Simulated scan of single mutants.
Amino acid sequence: MAESPVAEQRESVLDTTVQQSANSSLDPLAEAHPKFALIDGIEILSLIIALVGLVGNSIVLRLLGFRARRRSPFSVYILNLAGSDSIYLGSFFGLRMWRIVGDLNHLLEVLWLCLLGLSYCVGLSLLAAISTERCLSVLFPIWYRCHRPKHTSVTVCAILWALQGLYWGVIVGLYFLNKDHFYDFYFVLCFVRLGWFLLLTCVLGVSSLTLVLRVQCSSQRRRPPRLYFLVLLTVLVFLLCGLPLGVIYAVWFFRGFPIMPNRIFRLLACVNSSANPFIYFFLGSQWCRRGREPLRVVLQRALEEEQVGGNGGRDTSHPNTLDMLS
């Protein structure tokens, strides 16, 4: 029996999405030399940035995951964010290189793309959680220090990974195990992802704006903690470089075709996932000091949770990340 027009349309949309996600250009050079057309300036730059970002995030993972004795609540988020960025960059680099050097099986390509989607959504979720918790810490400092559950960071990270793993696992399972009914759920799953994306973007924007206003007000009386600037810079980089990829896919879903070449947005997404380690080490560096400091010390200083108190502008009774990570 022939497929219904609706099923044919859904399958066409999914196949077009997968093919457009994997290919980067449709110019005459690509048609004449499909292998070499993939290796253009933007692709080369994206691959270089992905490699650099992998090195930077690997350093963060090593310092926070294997060199730390105890972890502060904020460092747990940073550890998971570095993990999601590493998965995204590694998946992107592997997918692009595989398509350049050889033929990539369609089913395996779907797995690669789902892994990219998983890491991207986890990164967005973690940023929303980080900015929300920082916002709560400045709006309700007494509650945050005295009544915040001890394992909130670990629990939140585990829930975010589990939710995204379940969502993308359902997609992979339906696609491989029951492909005939996959297209019946495809649009529903896309709407769920779009709703999650819009919700987290709104949460990220509101909490970040609140944090900006708080930093601006506190800067008139004292210097804001370095951690506030770290969160704001990380969110700003995501809004400029990471968010456009989600927006372009949302527009793509409703319009059926991209409004701009998506390789540009993949480049920006690689910049977003690669920039965070440099933000940490930049803010943790003390340029007035002579000599070279170990990266561990620089990262510890960047993630230090400073609290404003009556002891010279800093509350030393709050657990110090320097002590936790040393």
Rank of each mutant, 00 (worst) to 15 (best):
R134W: 03
P149E: 10
N311I: 01
Y167V: 02
G205A: 15
N276Q: 09
L29A: 12
S125L: 05
M260K: 02
I130L: 13
E109C: 04
C288F: 14
E305Y: 07
S4C: 08
T316E: 12
L232S: 09
L118A: 06
L245N: 04
A32D: 06
K35I: 08
C135L: 12
E11A: 15
V52C: 14
M97Y: 09
S84G: 11
G94I: 04
E293R: 14
V235H: 05
F185D: 01
F36L: 15
I248R: 02
K35G: 08
F197Q: 02
Y186P: 01
F257N: 13
V215W: 05
S317Q: 09
Y167A: 10
L45H: 06
K179Y: 14
D85K: 11
E305M: 11
I39E: 04
P224E: 01
H318K: 13
L236P: 00
E31C: 09
R134I: 04
R96S: 11
F238A: 08
L139R: 14
H33N: 11
I142D: 12
P261Y: 07
G65H: 09
R222H: 06
S326A: 15
V18I: 15
T210V: 11
C157F: 07
W112M: 14
Q300M: 08
H318W: 15
Y280R: 02
S91A: 15
F253V: 07
E304N: 03
G165D: 07
L26K: 10
T321H: 09
K150I: 08
N276C: 10
